[in-house]
Design a protein around this nucleic acid. Structure first.
Length: 426
RNA sequence: GUGGAUGUAGCUCAGCUGGUUAGAGCGCCAGGUUGUGGCCCUGGAGGUCGAGGGUUCGAAUCCCUUCGUUCACCCCA
């Protein structure tokens, strides 16, 4: 353990990068709001029980990835590993179902999972996500998927692939599970060790295994699609039809199942194939039983979560992050200790007028301070020295051109405004 | 949790099969102007070679342990 490095799987977003993050967040919020979603900010920790119930006790997240602790009141609490369960909890707590109609909420913030870090995977990471609660129409599913698609497109991302599937409802899925178990049982010795366990606890997950031997077996196994009840079949057809209608391309992945137990019917992921092993930048689907499971009324829901680190990496990789500058507009240079007071006042005056000002603190040599001004990227330097101050004047130097002129102290702000290059005059 | 790669100055890295005071580029500081940046020149600061132990006359270099990073498995965003 070291006191001087951040804990495993965590990292600092430094000022230059923070500008890009802010840009990304602003864009996301704007688009989500335009689609009618309202932001909700839930606590970073919740009662552990919420995630046990919501995500499912046999999922990897709950079994081995949660940051849980007991507080001094003896409560078991957990740093949220995902955003849907907390939003659903808030939905129930504030009785939003009583407002009539459907509820559209979005969140954006850090999540916590104790996994082994690798490319695109962190222990504290950020997600934004939407939840559309109270609507069982396939239009809601399609709208949520299109929202994800459009959001990425508006950020400039193309070439992402949407994987789509349906996992049926509890009724038809139960039928399918039985059939799947029967099919795999005979040759279970050919399954990988973890899939043998899955066959007992969560058989659908076997479909998702990347082990060649398991894939060979599941290729022979019956398909969930053949077991769908009529309602689920129709629902899926409708979702597809709606996506086709607006020409949002997707790829049916019959074996796509997701790691959280609450999903029903529609599930989907958005993939960036250039991202390495952790290539899903968005995942979501329908969760018709979740609100009730968490102690609320029987209300359907659909939503997605998007990993912001992965989105950031994707934007960076494709050169879609704008260049940001933290350069000041004016750099103030005091040339003697006696003039620090005046310099301080100059910075104050200019900042009040709305200029971005950097102030030289110690009266070092002009050379050293001009060097600092140059490094700061400021287009203007204000030099305050004895010579000009005798006449109650200061020197303004245009750094790009190398020109400079003396102006009256009283005219400082006006002159600065005039001398700034056109791009800086907003 | 498992496996591979890796850990030398602020950054990017070089240091061959172990041999005396550990290097480069960039960056930083200072000087080359008595009040003028960017280019150039000169000088300087800065490293317990991730940590601990072992082998050896001698270890950045070999061995073990440990921690971190990274990639993959797993899982997921």
């Amino acid at each position: 353990m070291s006191l001087t490095v951040s804990p495993r799987g965590t990292y600092d977003i430094m000022p230059d990068q923070a500008l890009a993050w802010q840009w990304m967040e602003i864009n996301i919020r704007e688009i989500l709001v335009a689609y009618g979603y309202g932001e909700i900010r839930t606590p970073i920790f919740e009662h552990t029980e919420l995630f046990l119930r919501g995500i499912g006790e046999t999922t990897d997240i709950v079994e081995k990835e949660m940051y849980s602790f007991t507080d001094k009141g003896g409560r078991s609490l957990t740093l949220r590993p995902e955003g849907t369960a907390p939003v659903v909890r808030a939905y129930i707590q504030h009785k939003l179902h009583g407002q009539g109609g459907s509820t559209k909420l979005f969140y954006l913030g850090p999540m916590f999972r104790q996994e082994r870090p690798q490319a695109g995977r962190f222990r504290q990471f950020h997600q934004f996500g939407v939840e559309l609660i109270g609507e069982d129409s396939p239009v809601a599913d399609a709208e949520v998927i299109v929202l994800a698609h459009e959001l990425y497109r508006q950020l400039g991302l193309t070439g992402l692939e949407i994987y789509l599937n349906t996992v049926g409802c509890p009724v038809c899925r139960q039928e399918y599970k039985k059939a799947l178990i029967t099919s795999l049982k005979n040759s279970s010795d050919q399954l990988c060790p973890s899939c043998r366990l899955r066959l007992e606890k969560n058989p659908l997950r076997v479909l998702d295994c990347k082990e060649a031997s398991c894939q060979a077996l599941t290729a022979q196994a019956p398909s969930l699609h053949d077991f769908l009840c009529q309602d689920c079949r129709d629902h899926f057809q409708q979702v597809r039809k709606l996506l086709d209608q607006v020409q949002v391309k997707y790829k049916i992945q019959p074996k796509l199942v997701r790691g959280l137990d609450y999903y029903t019917r529609t599930v989907f992921e958005v993939i960036n194939h250039d991202l390495g092993a952790q290539n899903a930048i968005c995942g979501g689907g329908r969760y018709d039983g979740l609100v009730e499971e968490c102690g609320g009324p029987s209300v359907p829901g659909v939503g997605f979560a998007s990993g912001m680190e992965r989105l950031f990496m994707t934007l960076e990789q494709k050169g879609l992050l704008p260049a940001f500058s933290r350069a000041p507009q004016v750099y103030i240079i005091p040339l003697s200790a006696e003039l620090t007071t005046v310099s301080f006042e100059a910075a104050f005056i200019l900042r009040q007028k709305g200029f971005k000002v950097e102030l030289g603190y110690a009266p070092k040599s002009l050379k050293a301070q001009l060097k600092a001004a140059n490094k700061s990227g400021a287009p203007l330097a204000v030099i305050i020295g004895e010579d000009e101050w005798q006449d109650r004047q200061v020197t303004i130097r245009q750094m790009y051109e190398g020109n400079q002129l003396r102006v009256d102290w009283a005219d400082l702000a006006v002159q600065v405004a005039q001398l700034l290059p056109p791009a800086e005059q907003d």
